[in-house]
Simulated scan of single mutants.
Amino acid sequence: MGVTTKTGEKTSYLAKENNITLPVTVINGKSDGPVLLLTAGIHGDEFPSMYALQQLQQSIDPKEMSGVLVVLHLANLDGFHANRIALNPKDEKNLNREFPGSVDGTPTEQIAELLTREFIGKTDFLIDMHSGSANQTLLNHVYSPFVGNKELDALTFEFAKATGMQHIVMYGDRPRDPNNSISYPNTAMTRGKPGLTTEIGHLAQTDEESVAEALDVAKNAMYFLKMLPETPKQHPEPVIYETIKYPKSSKNGFFKASVVIGDKVKTGQDVGAVTDYFGNLVETIKSPVDGTVMMVNQMPAIKDGQSVMAIGVEVSE
């Protein structure tokens, strides 16, 4: 995109193409190694990873690093400045549902195409760093996708464990067609490149604990790839989930959860209630599975067919 970063140097700049502007840092290590792409702000209201990646790029000396680190600080700049939950105000689209994008498409589709071509196209490993939006509480976790390629899927799982995160979700629900890849990390996976999604922090907060965990994840990824001379610190008690289920409301009205993130629930257990606009109980939401509460919708407004929380199901022994 018109900027060269020489061996042993670091460059931070606004990368521009047509109507797209992206804040980028490229750190070109002194020694050979892989290309790692770390991205924040696919959703502009998810802040901890943005701060973490700022701290990361400021702390690294390229002369002490191997490989190339590409930091995309904010992929959805318009959503960030508009204080929007997930969407891009230019076309009301979710960037993480528009890949691989289109050069002739809407503004969000054009960003997706650029990220596919210029970022994913030149990387070896990718981490898409998210958090819970302003309407969600969230149990920190990492998605380890699988696409039916045994070697790639195994490497991706090792990469996920190396992040040091305790809760790891195995995720095989995305399309396996590179021309209909839908999400950012899945676009990497369908092109043979490990792509993780991390979820750290929630409620659009910027607390130091969440920023620190996101920073640790980024550093562990670099240690795993031998870009920095340390050993990744895996969590001593990882919890692996085989799927996530999303109980839904069948009514319109007000939702209030009766569980919190991290709670263990049983099939059929009450997990929340829906009242009508007058305060009358119209539905009790029950868990469809035995599992752990991973996310809870904290906004009271609920509609028929809308999910109210996420419940992770652990891998059976």
Score class of each variant (00 low, 15 high):
53 L>W: 07
282 V>K: 07
239 V>R: 14
212 A>K: 09
22 L>M: 14
308 V>D: 02
163 T>I: 09
248 K>A: 13
237 E>Y: 02
286 K>W: 03
315 V>G: 00
134 A>V: 13
307 S>Y: 09
14 L>P: 05
88 N>H: 04
243 T>W: 10
57 Q>E: 10
34 P>G: 08
270 D>S: 15
173 D>E: 14
307 S>M: 12
145 P>D: 02
35 V>D: 03
134 A>P: 01
173 D>Q: 13
249 S>K: 07
284 T>P: 03
305 G>K: 11
21 T>L: 10
109 E>N: 02
36 L>P: 02
314 E>I: 09
306 Q>A: 12
112 A>E: 06
102 S>G: 08
94 N>T: 04
290 D>C: 08
110 Q>Y: 01
5 T>C: 04
166 Q>S: 08
272 G>L: 03
257 A>C: 08
47 F>E: 04
185 P>R: 12
265 V>N: 15
133 S>Q: 11
275 T>S: 14
60 I>G: 01
206 T>P: 02
248 K>R: 14
18 N>C: 08
271 V>M: 05
64 E>V: 02
60 I>D: 05
11 T>Q: 14
294 M>W: 03
236 P>T: 05
64 E>L: 11
180 N>Y: 15
185 P>C: 10
173 D>N: 14
229 P>L: 01
151 E>S: 14
231 T>V: 15
28 N>R: 14
18 N>D: 13
248 K>F: 01
175 P>H: 10
